[in-house]
Nucleic acid binder design. Sequence first.
DNA 1: GTTTTTTATATGTCTAGTCATATACTTGTG
DNA 2: CACAAGTATATGACTAGACATATAAAAAAC
Lengths: 194, 194
Amino acid sequence: MTLEHAILGFLDRGSMTGYDLKTRCFDEAVGHLWTADQAQVYRTLGRLSDQGFVRSRIVAQRGKPDRRVFTITTKGRAELTAWLRRPIDLSPVRDPLLVQLSLAAQLGDHEVLALLERARDGYQARLDTLRAAQADRPSLADAPDARSEALYDMTLVAAMSAARTAIDWVDDCIEKVGRGLPPAAPRATSEGVA
Amino acid sequence: MTLEHAILGFLDRGSMTGYDLKTRCFDEAVGHLWTADQAQVYRTLGRLSDQGFVRSRIVAQRGKPDRRVFTITTKGRAELTAWLRRPIDLSPVRDPLLVQLSLAAQLGDHEVLALLERARDGYQARLDTLRAAQADRPSLADAPDARSEALYDMTLVAAMSAARTAIDWVDDCIEKVGRGLPPAAPRATSEGVA
DNA sequence: GTTTTTTATATGTCTAGTCATATACTTGTG
DNA sequence: CACAAGTATATGACTAGACATATAAAAAAC
């Protein structure tokens, strides 16, 4: 449901095409909070249209393909407002990297270290991207009002502090592994562990 | 692919049933890293069996239903090891709550505050759960060797510091909103925003 | 004494999301 | 001049995951 309402939220700031939503909104503006697949943006727009939450008109262009410009309807605006007031459950943690780490007892210390260092690089790269985004702030879907910007800034800060925390955590782990992990217990001969 | 390999990882510590995997491994031990749907555990076990990564035998019980006990094969163990060494991409952020916040400009300060306070409660509850998990540590699928425990502990610490950071961030936001957010720009009369 | 919980496996259906590919014209790069 | 990249929409096919439901019997709770 998030994609649906995120699209309504963007369209509420100004009418635009599926292409704009994908490139300007999801890739540029909120790529650090939510990514959207192009195919799904168009399919979701179709569904929103069926539900009467958005309306579209075709705008012809010279040279370039026709644009199908979507506009939020009164009904769509009502739905958006209702969703904004609706409490959202915390999204459950779902981190393949941590799963891998927790199961990595059979790897040697140096291999665990390599795993952690790759993770560190990843988080660092993410942090750099976020810092760049904060510096030359993308024009959030043509609606830069001060209130939106303040909220947008909060989400940037959230993402950045999460990345920083992750980096610190990885560094701690690297240090711990550097001092040596406890050895693995000898493997059970075969089957009978039950 | 994570569920597949997580299951292989657990079976590597000892043979067990789908039920055990769901309740003892995913719900209890690594619920803070990865949740698994019961239906999907069984279907994934089926697929692993087709691929020759696990083997199963039926064990009859009095009173209770038959158990289908799964054991990892040599091929499965090889696959697990290969996966453990395989670099994993950082999972992209995907946070409905932040999306909601970033689009919430049309809400009043008190409504944004309510949203943030619910989030705070959620993160606090998560942190409490994690602390409890650290205190009476679940017996990680019958294979408590020191190396596994050290790695498991790292993942607990990761989850806890993430939760703590989130709480701090929410508190900052609450304070900021308490001092008043900038007002929203007057809404465009209708269509013509392009 | 009835209901709920626990143990145990399995299928059907649905949604969300991913990946690939098709079309078509323009502009910029090598 | 050829090729890649940008603009723009759309469908087909697939995977992962969520939710509901079925069966079945014992044990525990009310």
